[in-house]
């Protein structure tokens, strides 16, 4: 069975990255949803990101 058709038969279990309102509304509908407290790498600080990229290499 294709993965998409499999999804149609399963219970939807969601991970939410981004708008908190989406998470809230799903939770209110009793959907199993995990909200990710997403942070941009190094708080979006460009200098830090450059350093981290150097690290990765």
């Amino acid at each position: 069975m294709s993965k998409i058709n499999k999804l149609f038969r399963e219970e939807l279990k969601v991970v939410n990255l981004g708008l908190e309102s989406f998470h809230r509304e799903l939770r209110e509908k009793k959907v199993e949803v995990v909200h990710i407290n997403w942070r941009p790498c190094a708080g979006g600080n460009k200098r830090m990101i450059e350093l981290l990229n150097k690290l990765k290499k």
Binding site: K13, V14, V15, N16, L17, F22, V34, I36
Partner: peptide, 27 residues
């Protein structure tokens, strides 16, 4: 709240769907 996808999946390995509304470059 988990900070990364990896840690979210560690605690909830049955997650099958991701809803992403982050700013484009990160999304």
């Amino acid at each position: 709240s988990p900070a990364t996808l990896d840690s979210a999946l560690k605690y909830n390995p049955e997650i099958n769907f991701a809803l992403i509304s982050l700013p484009g470059e990160y999304a």
